[in-house]
Structure formats: C-alpha cells, structure tokens
C-alpha cells in the first residue's frame, strides 16, 4: 500500500482494506505472543496456586528440593533437546543413566574417583556413538535403535552389578550429589552449568546452527554442504553424555550405583522438551523452552506431593498436562 493510495480519496475502500489487514495482523501477532506466553503463564498460575494452597510450597527448603529433584531430569532433557532439534529422539537415556551410574560406582571403588567418573562418561559417549552411527550412517529409525540400546544398557547395568546396589561410595564422589554451595545443592549448580553451556553451543556456535538446519530439512542441509551424518551423530553423543553425567550425579545423590534407576526418565525428558514448545519434528526449539518444561514437570510433581493428592490422580494430572501441551502445540502449528 503506497502513500498515494492511502491519501487519495478515490481509493477509500482500500484504506478500509489496509486497516482491516492491520487489525488482522495485530490480532495474529497478539495471538502469537499469547502462544509464546502460554506456558510461562500456566507456570506462573501453577506457582501462585501452589503458594496459596500449600504452606510448605514457597519455603526455601522446598524450592531447594524442587531444584534438587529436577536436576537429573534437567540434565537428561538438555541432551535430549539437541537430539530432538536435530530431528531424532533417544529412548535409551534413562537406561544410560542407570548404566553409567552403576559402572562408575563399580570402577571408582576399585580404581579411584577420577577413573570412575571417566568410565561413566566414556560409557555414555560409546552408547551415543553407537546410536548415532546406526541412525545416521545406516539410516535406521531412532525408535528401534535407541529402544534396543535402552534394553541393552539396562541389561548391562544389571549384569555388571549382579543386580545388587553398589554402595559405600567414597565421600569425594558423593559430594557431587549431596554437597551444596551456600545452600544451593551441587546437582542444581551442575544442571545450571550444563544448561548454560548447552544454550551457548546451540544458539551461538556454527555447530548449533547446523543442528537446526539438519533437523529442519536434512536434504537442504546436505546440499548446502553440511556433513549431516556427523551432526546427527554428535547430537546423539551429546544426549548420551548428558545422560551419563546425570547418572553420575544421581549416583552421588543416592550415594550408590543403582541399576534400576531411571525407568521412564527418557520419556519424561522428551515430554519436558515437547512441553516447552520444541517440536518433535525437529529444526526448531530452544533450551530455554526445555528449562521451562522441566521446571513445570518438577514443580507439578512436587506440588502434587505437597497437596497430598492421591497417587492415581497425580498420574491423571501429569497425563492431562502432557496432552494439553501437545494440543497447544498442534493449535500453534495449524495457525
């Protein structure tokens, strides 16, 4: 619309059209910003609701609890965000948490803390490479490959420990799960660290941009010279590394290598990523969204416990939140 058109009296109807267009655009923009603010608004509503309905919710001890409890999920979800933006997903994360924690516990009892930590992380890297290799080079479905490693890693965790809990871990190690800095638990500090590092990589490096490109359109990414296989593989390695790191923190937190932990953790991590607004189709999303999703799930679980909601209803509530998030995502995509 040119100025001439707008000022000319003979084109009056066009002015109306322009005004209508502007109005429609305004509403659209408004709705879009409503979209962006929907989850934060829900989160805020949840916080307010819990503050008024439970005297224990807004206490330092409880907020500290929430941070501590979400830290494991947050670290796993950080890695998961990379894989999902890259267009895949990783079902093995929960089992990797268990395997790394157990293997690290066994190794550090025999060879000392540094070796234990190294073993835990190496296992994560190895499983991630295995997943990534089969998915990128052989073009296999992430579903079947990571489901396979889910079962395998769980089996390995149980077999190397004989199904027993590996206990009596030295204090130098367990401090990563039980210590605190000025009242803030180490696991929370670790998750903030992992999160910030992940955010910088994803947002401000060429590698991060390439992940988005590969997740958005693999062929276009390949044609523009990106080594697609390498990027996909890297996302899976990052995800498993995060999971094994979470496994170390969890082992520190319960002061034992426990081969049975982390069942369904991967699903909660994927849910946290999607809840935040990152699409499972890949190519878009951010860690800030994931953080919001993680905190939402953490606060919800904590709040349901504090309100003494019967367990079956807790399940219903969590399920409804997941489905609602998916619905909002679908509405957003349809607009």
């Amino acid at each position: 619309m040119t100025d001439a058109n707008l000022n000319s009296k003979t084109f009056q109807p066009n002015v109306d059209v322009a005004w209508n267009l502007r109005l429609i655009n305004g509403i659209k923009r408004y709705l879009q910003s409503w979209d962006q603010l929907f989850l934060p608004a829900c989160f805020l509503a949840l916080l307010l609701f819990l503050t008024f309905s439970s005297p224990y919710f807004l206490t330092w001890a409880n907020l500290r609890n929430v941070l501590l409890q979400t830290s494991i999920l947050a670290i796993v979800a950080t890695g998961m965000t990379f894989v999902i933006i890259g267009g895949g997903f990783d079902l093995s994360a929960g089992s990797v948490v268990a395997l790394s924690g157990t293997a690290a516990a066994l190794a550090l009892l025999s060879f000392g803390v540094p070796v234990g930590i190294l073993v835990g992380l190496l296992i994560g890297a190895a499983i991630g490479s295995f997943n990534g290799l089969l998915i990128s080079k052989m073009n296999l479905s992430p579903f079947i490959v990571t489901l396979g490693t889910l079962v395998t890693a769980r089996g390995l965790a149980l077999s190397i420990s004989g199904g027993h809990t590996v206990s009596n871990l030295p204090r130098e190690f367990t401090v990563i799960g039980t210590g605190n800095l000025m009242g803030i638990p180490y696991p929370a500090l670790i998750f903030i660290g992992v999160f910030v590092l992940g955010h910088i990589i994803l947002k401000y490096t060429a590698f991060g941009v390439k992940i988005f490109a590969v997740g958005g359109n693999r062929e276009a990414a390949r044609l523009s010279g990106i080594k697609v296989e390498k990027i996909i593989m890297a996302t899976f390695i990052i995800c498993s590394l995060c999971a094994s790191f979470a496994g170390l923190v969890l082992a520190g937190r319960i002061r034992a290598g426990e081969p049975t932990v982390g069942v369904f953790l991967e699903l909660y991590a994927i849910a946290a990523v999607v809840l935040g607004g990152t699409s499972l189709k890949g190519g878009q999303g951010s860690l800030v969204k994931t953080l919001l999703g993680v905190l939402f799930i953490g606060v919800l679980q904590n709040g349901l416990n504090l309100l003494n909601v019967p367990y079956y209803w807790q399940q219903v509530a969590i399920g409804v939140v997941f489905v609602s998030a998916a619905t909002i995502g679908a509405l957003r995509a349809a607009r």
Binding site: S167, R253, I254
Partner: peptide, 8 residues
C-alpha cells in the same frame, strides 16, 4: 526399595 540407595 533399595537396601543401600535409601540410606540418604
């Protein structure tokens, strides 16, 4: 659930 894991 666990003999050792719940000590904490």
């Amino acid at each position: 659930i666990s003999v050792d894991g719940l000590k904490v």
